[in-house]
């Protein structure tokens, strides 16, 4: 279209009836600073002022640095951050605005046109390039030395194994994914409050209460670095309902996994593993704040809404001689999100 060089003057009969012609670049309009010395001077002054603001900003930032030592309080840190940051912002914006203003008002604003060339290399260049490659191929003899080619490719394909094998063997620790099946819970282990670690008596769990629970392990274990991984599977939510409200739980026939309306469910969502912790006392619904899966505690933690599919696993509990809540056993299934071999 742009190649069309016909005139489009409509008064001239015989102009192209198919396409209009490019009118060319619009007329250049001069700025005030181009012909008014006063405007030019004013623009220059503005640029200078902006640079001066930048210098003042830097100085201000340095003063703020030495004058305000953050004292660790919210106010102190906020003030230090604010003054340092504002100084920095002025220092930077001063330079930026000055440079742009300079370019816009004082440097040439006449648009220039530069030619483009097609990206494709010209045929003769291509010919030479292809010839050179062919010469190289011929020289190396890669085409006819089949065994050599095979050996070279195999060597290149294989050498990454020298890095990959040691890496892959160690990067997943012992690769024992069977650990997903077990948690720290075991028969007779007391339920304790999270994060304080106080064992919980059944009598303390009043109706409508919800306790965030961890296994009652030693203080030493709770401060070890392995604990976080154990806790990531073992956290439990303990809730007491009016026993009349409980429609069902996950106890198999002949067993009772709850105790007088007290039920314990894994806190790890069966969707992607967020802690499911929003318990609504009136509806007995447990809601996950990450993706809103909703579980019905009064009905074996079945899913009533959202992206999760399976109920939260129930921890079988009972009371010991002293009236403390204890686990009957570990969970009967892996807690948390589904994975391929979960049921194997």
């Amino acid at each position: 279209m742009s190649d069309n060089q016909h005139s489009t003057d409509l008064t001239t009969p015989g102009a192209s009836q198919e396409v209009f012609a490019d009118p060319g670049m619009p007329e250049h309009k001069h700025r005030r600073a181009d012909h008014e010395p006063a405007a030019d001077k004013r623009a220059e002054l503005q640029v200078v002022v902006l640079f001066v603001i930048s210098i003042l900003g830097t100085i201000g930032s340095l003063i703020a640095y030495f004058a305000f030592r953050p004292d660790g309080t919210t106010d102190g840190t906020r003030f230090s951050t604010l003054t340092l940051g504002l100084g920095m912002a002025f220092a930077l914006l001063g330079i930026g605005l000055a440079a742009v203003h300079w370019a816009k008002t004082l440097m040439s604003d006449t648009e220039v046109s530069e030619e483009r060339h097609a990206q494709r290399s010209p045929d003769e260049v291509r010919e030479v390039a292809v010839q050179k490659l062919q010469d190289g191929v011929k020289d190396s003899g890669i085409g006819r030395r089949g065994v050599l080619k095979g050996a070279a490719l195999s060597a290149l394909a294989l050498f990454p194994l020298t890095i990959a094998v040691p890496l892959v063997s160690s990067v997943g620790n012992d690769w024992n994914v069977g650990k997903f099946r077990h948690t720290r819970w075991e028969k007779g282990m007391r339920l304790a409050t999270d994060p304080t670690g106080r064992p919980i008596k059944a009598a303390d769990v009043t109706i409508g209460s919800v306790f965030h629970v961890i296994p009652d392990v030693s203080e030493e274990e709770r401060t070890s670095h392995e604990w976080i991984t154990e806790k990531a599977k073992a956290v439990v939510l303990l809730i007491r309902l009016d026993p009349r409200d409980i429609e069902s739980d996950q106890s198999p026939k002949g067993q009772t996994w709850s105790h007088e309306g007290i039920v314990a469910f894994s806190k790890i969502c069966t969707h992607v593993g967020c802690p499911v912790a929003l318990y609504e006392q009136q509806t007995h619904h447990l809601l996950c704040p990450c993706h809103q899966s909703t579980f019905d505690v009064a009905n074996g933690a079945k899913v009533v809404f959202g992206p999760a599919h399976r109920p939260l696993p129930q921890l079988p509990i009972t009371v010991d001689d002293e009236g403390y809540l204890v686990a009957q056993d570990d969970f009967d299934q892996p807690v948390g999100p589904s994975y391929w071999e979960r049921l194997k």
Partner: peptide, 28 residues
């Protein structure tokens, strides 16, 4: 726009206009 085709590029020279504009914009 007028005078702009697939065979040319119309604008301002890198040095100094675009150096100042783009460099200044970094600071902004």
């Amino acid at each position: 726009g007028g005078g702009r085709t697939d065979k040319n590029v119309v604008g301002f020279p890198l040095f100094p206009v675009y150096v100042a504009k783009a460099g200044g914009f970094f600071f902004v």
